[in-house]
Amino acid sequence: MTGRLPNESMIAMDETTISRGFRSKRQEQTPKNRLPPGQYVTTDFPVLSAGPTPQIKLGDWTFALQLGGSLLGKWNWAEFEALPQTTIKRDIHCVTKWSKLDTTWQGVTFDDLLKAVGLKEPPAFYIMAHCDGGYTTNVPVADLIGGKGMITTRYEGLPIPPAHGGPARLLVPHLYFWKSAKWIRRVRFMEKDQPGFWESFGYHNYGDPWKEQRYDGD
């Protein structure tokens, strides 16, 4: 990685004009070792979506685990809410450089999903998340088990708002937040890794913020 200016604009560096008195407001009061490289802390919760916000009725909602053509498990909303619930507090990091600290989420861990379908071991190495609206993202199973990944239904104690991915979103907070897929409906196990929506279009296949793996080629 060549020496890059913080928050360098995407455009080639030509002659730039220094604007008197302009400075970044972002690097204010954050413990330095808490933020991955290139990130700044926000108290907002920005919304970034690849499409319109789906309006989903809970009565129609289901969530499924699949392997190849077979269904490992499927739950409607009431059934899903009856699964063991876990609450966690984590920092989240968006590839567009904002980070939000100490966010609280509640839902069902990936480990509990596997238990619920009677599996002691995950049946494959990778998954693809499939969402309402067609969004997809791929995640190694190793990054979901051991409490690292959840299907969440509550943010800060309240149902996740639709714009933020409700009724349910995948949460994989140790990777860039585009992996925490909104409006998730299916997790499909894959023998071989395949790139999802952003991974096939310029973005890194794995997305570790601590290694600053933002883009394909990083």
Partner: peptide, 12 residues
């Protein structure tokens, strides 16, 4: 528009 701070930080 593009603003550049003295430390090189830019916003557009």
């Amino acid at each position: 528009i593009r603003l550049t701070a003295e430390d090189g930080y830019q916003a557009q």
